[in-house]
Amino acid sequence: MKRRRNRRQDTRLLLLFAAGGLFAAALVGLLLSDRAMVTDFSQKNLAPCLRHPFGTDWMGRDMLARTLAGLSLSIRIGALTAAVSAAAALVLGVAAAVLGRWADAVISWCIDLVMGIPHILLVLLISLAFGRGFAGVVAGVALSHWPSLARVIRGEVLQLQQAPYVCSAGRLGVSRLRIARTHLFPHLLPQFLIGLILQFPHAILHEASITFLGFGLPPEQPAIGVILSESMRYLTTGKWWLAVFPGFALVLMVLLFALVGERLRQLLDPASLHE
């Protein structure tokens, strides 16, 4: 009798496939970053063909190379900003729950303050304060994406503190730092990993958004936001491929990141162990 496939096995395969596709896109785009800048005016404004599957732009640059280079740049920015944001959320969320009432009040006030400002406006303001460019984009996205995850981690820590083994450790004189390291962080790891992965699509979309608006990466870099912004001037002349392929690639990458986060959540959920 043929054994029925386990849902967790299917989830692992899909997770590996999505993660492998994203890693391949980042690596190939990094290798094509120089080619994405090469101009050839004898090949400008070509529609998609075998030699140029995504066509060429008004300077004869290959749109496939530019799209892959832009995706690679977005993935690297997303990885850096998501890591910084998730680490800040972990530290602040744990600190709010274990350092006492005053720390909780101050950190909760900061969370409410950041979440009370329109997100794209906050990213723009921080990016401008840090001088725009790569550093401004990284700072703007990283410093604006931590509150939601910090609030989740704070709630999880407050719940864990009521567990009998944590209360017993406190009564036995175990230090707060050791309790956090031994009892809290292992239980927070699934939420932290899921939050880290789910930060990626938000970071990528906000990086592309502020770059599209002209407040992010400089125009000489082959970023998706730059490509989409420049293509707006040529859509009315029928050059649809300048925006359709980069835009579709951006949406596909964001959906893959969201899929990785959702599948990872299912994989780490204890309730799915016997599915």
Rank of each mutant, 00 (worst) to 15 (best):
L73T: 13
A103K: 12
I107V: 11
A96T: 05
I111P: 04
V106G: 10
L80T: 15
S85I: 08
V106N: 11
I77C: 15
L128G: 00
S74D: 07
G131F: 03
V84L: 15
R101A: 04
V114A: 13
A105F: 05
A88C: 13
P118H: 03
A83S: 15
I75A: 13
V98S: 06
A89C: 01
L80V: 15
W102E: 05
A129M: 03
W109D: 09
G78A: 09
A87Y: 06
I117G: 02
L99G: 01
A95F: 13
A89T: 01
G93Y: 08
S85V: 04
V114Q: 12
G116K: 02
S72N: 06
L71H: 09
L124A: 03
G100T: 01
V94P: 03
A86F: 01
L125I: 01
I120S: 10
L99P: 02
I117S: 02
T81L: 12
L80K: 14
V98I: 04
I111F: 05
I120P: 03
W102P: 00
A89V: 01
W109E: 11
I107A: 09
A105L: 11
S72Q: 08
V98L: 08
A97C: 06
V91P: 06
L113E: 00
A86M: 08
G78L: 08
A83V: 14
V106W: 12
A89F: 00
I120Q: 07
A96H: 11
A87G: 09
T81H: 11
A95Q: 12
C110I: 12
L121I: 04
A97E: 13
A86G: 01
L99W: 04
S74C: 07
A95P: 12
H119C: 03
A82C: 06
T81F: 09
W102Y: 06
G131R: 06
L125Q: 00
S127L: 02
L92D: 10
V94E: 04
A82L: 07
V123F: 01
L113S: 08
I120T: 10
A86I: 00
A129T: 00
